[in-house]
Simulated scan of single mutants.
Amino acid sequence: MPELPEVEVTRLGISPYLINQTIKKVHVHQRQLRWKVPLQVHLSEGLVINDVTRRAKYLFIHTDAGEMVLHLGMSGKMRVVDAQLARKKHDHIEIELHSGKKLVLNDARRFGSCLWQDVRNSQALAMLDNLGPEPLTDDFDNKRLFALSRGRKVPVKSFIMNNAVVVGVGNIYANESLFNTGIDPRRAAGRVSLKRYKLLTQQIKIVLAKAIEHGGTTLRDFAQADGSPGYFAQHLHVYGRVGEECDVCKAPIFSKVIGQRNTFFCKMCQR
Rank of each mutant, 00 (worst) to 15 (best):
D226Q: 13
L200I: 04
A233Q: 04
F254P: 00
H71Y: 06
D91F: 01
S113M: 14
L39S: 06
N50K: 15
Q30R: 08
K153T: 14
T218W: 15
E67M: 11
R109D: 06
S255I: 12
I19P: 00
G215Y: 12
Q234G: 14
H42D: 11
D141S: 13
E213T: 15
V238N: 01
A65C: 08
N162Q: 04
F60N: 08
I204C: 09
V69S: 09
P38R: 14
M68S: 00
Q224I: 11
G182Y: 15
K250I: 09
D51Q: 14
A164V: 09
A108Q: 05
R152H: 09
L4G: 00
A211H: 03
L145S: 08
D51K: 13
H62Q: 06
V80K: 02
T53A: 08
H214A: 03
F111C: 06
R110A: 12
G112A: 00
Q117L: 12
V166T: 01
C249D: 12
V166L: 07
R54P: 10
K143H: 14
R144D: 02
V104D: 04
A188R: 13
V81L: 01
F232N: 15
R144E: 06
L125V: 11
G46A: 00
E8R: 00
P155E: 15
K88D: 13
V165C: 12
R34H: 13
D129P: 06
E245P: 09
I206R: 02
A147S: 10
D91T: 06
A209W: 01
W116F: 10
T181E: 11
K102H: 04
M74S: 11
